[in-house]
Design a protein around this nucleic acid. Structure first.
Lengths: 151, 151
DNA sequence: GTGGGGCTTCCCACGGTGGGAAGGTCAAGG
DNA sequence: CCTTGACCTTCCCACCGTGGGAAGCCCCAC
């Protein structure tokens, strides 16, 4: 039984990539345009599903779509050197560590502020005063420009 | 010398919030509409600059604009209870910790993969195979839905 | 042949941020 | 007083990755 091609909804179900995003990836050239039924429905064979799973997994690991473009190229290139792949991965690891450090800086500053805040009914919480404070850079400042997503 | 009001460019310079963003914050009601010169230029007095610094500082600490809306309301409310402020801060700390955990999961998985990759000229790097692998969830999977920003 | 679920394309939104065009304002210098 | 050039105004567009929804077509079962 050579697994028959499936439509986009089924592909979404089995790969965990939403139909919307599958179309988006096609539109932006991350995946090749899917085959179509005479009626215009997109069809996905096993290797397409494989690629979609690859993408989802990479997104899970925090790779940007651009990163994935690189990884996919390496994946498809049979003669690829593992060194290149490793480099991409390690660079991403470094990037992740930078982000973690940034978040930890924020956490530290904020926890410290919260500790000094009574947490009672009086309006004397120093958090606000610190936030309003005149521009003395603190632990979090080196991370300017970083914005976390999906609060 | 009662510090005279400044125009938006100067305000941007001294607060570290870009002119674009200052206008955006005004538009979205995060800050009150600025006073204007007869010619229509926005003017910012000391307390406006204070508020802008408050916002920038909060952004640095990873607060969303919505969070800041809350914090600003608490700040302006003289009778605010410090407990509320503390609660907002602590919730944000918890959120930051969740994000850190997510990123650490990715880092762990990816480092492990990179370790097992020769990093030589041969096309046998297991990273790609793992990425392509058939959908076994790994350490990073619990964090689905999280996307880091500004890679 | 009809109903309803799936598919198609298209546009809009989000959060924050930047870029840039077309035009008005302001202050300094001649 | 007038020109120059820096600054300001509003307005629209873009990014990324994702979801929502409308209008309309397709496919299958009954």
């Amino acid at each position: 039984m050579t697994t028959a091609p499936v439509t986009i909804g089924e592909a979404a179900r089995v790969t965990g990539v939403s139909a919307k995003m599958i179309r988006y990836y096609e539109e932006t050239g991350l995946v090749a345009p899917a085959a179509r039924t005479p009626g215009g429905y997109r069809l996905y064979g096993p290797s397409d599903l494989h690629a979609l799973r690859f993408i989802r997994r990479s997104r899970d690991l925090g790779f940007s779509v651009e990163d994935i473009r690189t990884l996919l190229a390496l994946w498809r290139d049979r003669g690829r050197a593992s060194a290149e792949v490793k480099a991409v991965a390690l660079e991403h690891v470094a990037d992740l560590r930078r982000r973690i450090a940034a978040l930890e800086g924020m956490t530290r500053t904020l926890s410290r502020l919260a500790e000094t805040c009574g947490g009672n009914a009086h309006p004397d919480c120093p958090i606000l005063d610190d936030l309003a404070g005149d521009d003395q850079p603190t632990a979090a400042s080196p991370n300017r420009g970083f914005r976390p997503a999906r609060h």
